[in-house]
Design a protein around this nucleic acid. Structure first.
Length: 594
DNA sequence: GAGTTTGAAACT
DNA sequence: CAGTTTCAAACTC
C-alpha cells in the first residue's frame, strides 16, 4: 500500500521539492463558526482570557436571564457570533457552546494548497475565502520573514522518531521534512502512508495535536490573505506550558510554536544566539521590572490574574515590545495592540468614575433630595476633578511613553506608590511585584472608589440627604453604580470584541507594515491613539473614546476598522440620556483628547 | 561541536 | 491518571 501510494506520490515529484506542508486543516474545518480563530474558546478570545471571562461574567450579571450553557462537553467550542443588528441598540453578542465535531485525519493529502499548520477554518466570509496558496507563495512564506530577511526553514535532527512523532518539529508543524538532518525520515511524500498513519495515531491520542499551542489567530487569517499576511504575530498558549525551571523564558516550551507562528515561537526569523540572549535579557529585565512580561504560560499558569492585570497587560506588553523591537524582532502583540492602549484603559476607568458619579446623582434625583443647580455644580465638580485626574494621568502616560526603555514613567509609579493602599507595588496576595500597568489601573481604581463613593459625594457636595446614604440608601446607590459601570463596561467589551473580530477578519495592511513602522499609535508622542479622521466625528458619539481607530489615514484597511469603530460609536452613549452631563463630559473628552 | 538541560510527547 | 521514559531542541561550555 505504501509503495502504491509512493508511486502516485512520485508522480508528483515536480512539486515535492517545494516546502510543502501537510494539511491538517480538515480536521478542524467546520469546528468553528467564528469570525476569529481565537474566538474558538474563551482562552483565545481577544487574546485575553481574563477579559473574555470578565465579559462573560458581566453578561451573566447584566443579563442573568440569558442562558449560558455550562461547558458540559469535553471539547466545547465557544462560539462567538457577532451580529450586525439593524438597530445599534441591538448590538448583540452570542456566545454559544457547541460540541466540536470529530476531528479525523485527512484521508488523503493532496498537493499542499493551504496553510499547513493547523488552521482553524473560518466560515469563509467573502473576504476570507480560503485562498489556495500557491507553491510559490508557500516557498516565499517559508524562506522569507516579513521583513524580507531570509527565514531559515525548519530543519529537524530527528534520529529515532522517523520524524513521525510530535517530537519532530517539522511533523508537529505540519510540514514535510526538507533539507533536514534527520535520520530515517518518513515525514516526506515518499512515506505518505506511514506519515498518514502517524498523523492518525497522533490525532487519536490528541485531536488537538496539530493545533498550534500558541494561538496564532492573526497570522492564520492573514496567511489566508497571503501577502497581507506575516503581519503582527499574536500568540497565546492555548493549553499552558508546564515549565518548571526555565521560568517560561526559554524556548523549550516554545518548540511547537514554530509550527504555529514561525520559526522561533515569536514569529521571528532565526537570529543569532547572541541576539536571542539579548532578547531574553530585555525580557527578563522587563519582567523583573514589571513582572508583566507576557509569557504564554504565565497567563495560563495564573488563572487568578485579575481583570485589572489582564487589561493592563495589553498596553504594557505593547510598550515593552516597542522597547524590545528596537533591537530585536521579538514580538508578542495582542490583536488589540493597536486598538486597546493603556490610555484607553485609563480613560475607561475615568469614564466609570463619571458613571458612578452619575449614578449617585441619578439616585439623588430619584429621591428628590437634590437641588438641581447644586446638583449640576456637584456633578461638574466631579467631572472636572476627573478630568483633572485624567490630565494628570495622561501626563504620566506621556512620560511613560517617552521613557526610552519603554518602562512606565516614574511619576506614575511614584504616584501609585505613594498611595496608602499598602500595595507599594507589590501584590499582597502573592508577594510579587505588581506591574506598572496594574499599578496604574489600581490607581484609577482607587480614584474610582474615592470619586464614586458616597462618602466622597457627601464630602464634596453634601447634597445627598444623609437618609439616602444609610443602610438601604447605600445599597441602592451601590447597586445603581454597579449597574451603570457594568453596563458600560459590558458595552465596552462588546465593542472591543467586535473590533478585535473585525481586525481578525479584515487584517489591516497596517499590520503588514508593522515591522517597518513599529511605532504604535500610543507611541506617537502624545500617547493618544488617533485615527486618520482624528476621531473628531466619532469620538463624541460614543462618549468614552475608548476605542479609537488605530488605522492610519492612508491605510486601505482603514475602512474596515474605522467603520467598525464608527458603527460602534453609535451604539453606546452615556446611559439614561443625561444629556447635560454627557455634553459636558464630551466637551471634556474633546478638550482632553486635544 | 560535544555534552547538558529542559520540557513535551510517549509510554507504562 | 500519575510516574517514567524517550525524544529533540535549546542551551552551555
Amino acid at each position: 500500500m505504501e509503495k502504491v501510494e509512493q508511486g502516485e506520490q512520485n508522480s508528483d515529484s515536480g512539486s515535492k521539492k517545494l516546502a510543502r506542508q501537510l494539511d491538517f486543516t480538515d480536521a478542524f474545518r467546520g469546528s468553528m463558526n467564528v469570525s476569529s480563530p481565537e474566538c474558538q474558546d474563551s482562552q483565545k478570545l481577544l487574546e485575553s482570557k481574563s477579559l473574555s471571562q470578565l465579559h462573560l461574567q458581566l453578561q451573566s450579571r447584566l443579563h442573568p436571564q440569558s442562558q449560558m450553557k455550562p461547558q458540559s462537553h469535553s471539547q466545547p467550542q465557544l462560539q462567538l457570533q457577532l451580529q450586525q443588528p439593524h438597530s445599534p441598540a441591538q448590538l448583540h453578542l452570542q456566545l454559544k457552546l457547541q460540541p466540536m465535531p470529530p476531528q479525523l485525519p485527512r484521508p488523503q493529502l493532496g498537493p499542499m494548497v493551504q496553510r499547513s499548520h493547523p488552521v482553524h477554518k473560518l466560515p469563509t466570509p467573502p473576504m476570507q475565502v480560503a485562498k489556495q496558496e500557491s507553491p510559490r507563495s508557500r516557498a516565499r512564506a517559508n524562506s522569507e520573514a516579513k521583513d524580507g530577511t531570509p527565514k531559515k526553514q525548519k530543519q529537524c535532527n530527528c534520529k529515532s522518531s522517523r520524524c513521525l512523532k510530535l517530537y519532530c518539529e517539522c511533523f508537529a508543524a505540519g510540514i514535510y521534512c526538507e533539507s533536514c538532518n534527520c535520520i530515517n525520515c518518513q515525514n516526506n511524500v515518499e512515506n505518505e502512508a506511514a506519515r498518514q498513519e502517524a498523523v492518525g495515531a497522533t490525532l487519536e491520542r490528541n485531536p488537538n495535536a496539530f493545533r498550534p499551542k500558541i494561538a496564532s489567530s492573526s497570522r492564520e487569517s492573514r496567511d489566508r490573505m497571503e501577502d497581507a499576511a506575516e503581519a503582527q504575530v499574536v500568540g497565546k498558549h492555548s493549553k499552558g506550558c508546564h515549565c518548571k525551571k526555565s521560568g517560561c523564558l526559554k524556548k523549550y516550551s516554545n518548540v511547537a510554536i514554530s509550527g504555529a507562528i514561525g520559526s522561533s515561537g515569536y514569529g521571528t526569523p532565526l537570529v543569532s544566539k547572541k541576539r536571542k540572549r539579548k532578547e531574553y535579557f530585555f525580557g527578563i529585565a522587563a519582567k523583573d521590572q514589571s513582572n508583566q512580561k507576557i509569557t504564554p504560560c504565565q497567563q495560563d499558569n495564573h488563572p487568578k490574574a485579575s481583570v485589572t492585570s489582564s487589561l493592563s497587560s495589553i498596553p504594557v506588553s505593547c510598550t515593552m515590545n516597542a522597547a524590545i523591537s528596537g533591537s530585536s524582532k521579538l514580538k508578542y502583540r495582542s490583536p488589540l495592540a493597536d486598538i486597546l492602549q493603556l490610555q484607553d484603559v485609563k480613560d475607561l476607568c475615568s469614564l466609570l468614575v463619571i458613571l458612578s458619579e452619575e449614578a449617585t446623582k441619578t439616585l439623588a434625583e430619584k429621591g428628590g433630595k437634590m437641588d438641581g443647580h447644586t446638583e449640576r455644580g456637584n456633578v461638574e465638580t466631579f467631572v472636572g476633578l476627573s478630568t483633572q485626574e485624567r490630565k494628570e494621568s495622561r501626563k504620566g502616560h506621556d512620560s511613560q511613553n517617552t521613557t526610552p526603555d519603554g518602562s512606565f514613567g516614574r511619576n506614575q509609579v511614584d504616584r501609585v506608590g505613594s498611595n496608602d493602599s499598602g500595595s507599594d507595588g507589590v501584590d499582597m496576595d502573592n508577594g510579587r511585584p505588581i506591574s506598572p500597568g496594574t499599578l496604574a489601573l489600581m490607581c484609577d481604581e482607587q480614584d474610582f472608589m474615592a470619586a464614586g463613593s458616597p462618602e466622597r459625594v457627601v464630602s464634596h457636595g453634601e447634597n445627598i440627604n444623609q437618609k439616602s446614604l444609610d443602610g438601604h440608601g447605600f445599597t441602592e446607590l451601590f447597586a445603581e453604580q454597579e449597574r451603570l459601570v457594568l453596563t458600560r463596561l459590558w458595552d465596552f467589551l462588546n465593542r472591543l470584541i467586535t473590533c478585535g473580530s473585525i481586525r481578525e477578519t479584515m487584517p489591516s495592511p497596517l499590520a503588514e507594515n508593522d515591522t517597518g513602522s513599529e511605532q504604535k499609535p500610543s507611541e506617537n508622542g502624545n500617547g493618544i491613539i488617533k485615527s486618520g479622521s482624528e476621531m473628531g466625528s466619532h469620538k463624541e458619539a460614543y462618549g468614552n473614546g475608548i476605542i479609537n481607530s488605530p488605522v492610519p489615514e492612508a491605510s486601505p484597511g482603514a475602512t474596515a476598522v474605522t467603520s467598525c469603530n464608527e458603527d460602534l460609536s453609535l451604539k453606546v452613549g452615556l446611559p439614561n440620556g443625561n444629556g447635560e452631563i454627557k455634553s459636558h463630559i464630551d466637551r471634556e473628552w474633546k478638550l482632553d483628547r486635544k
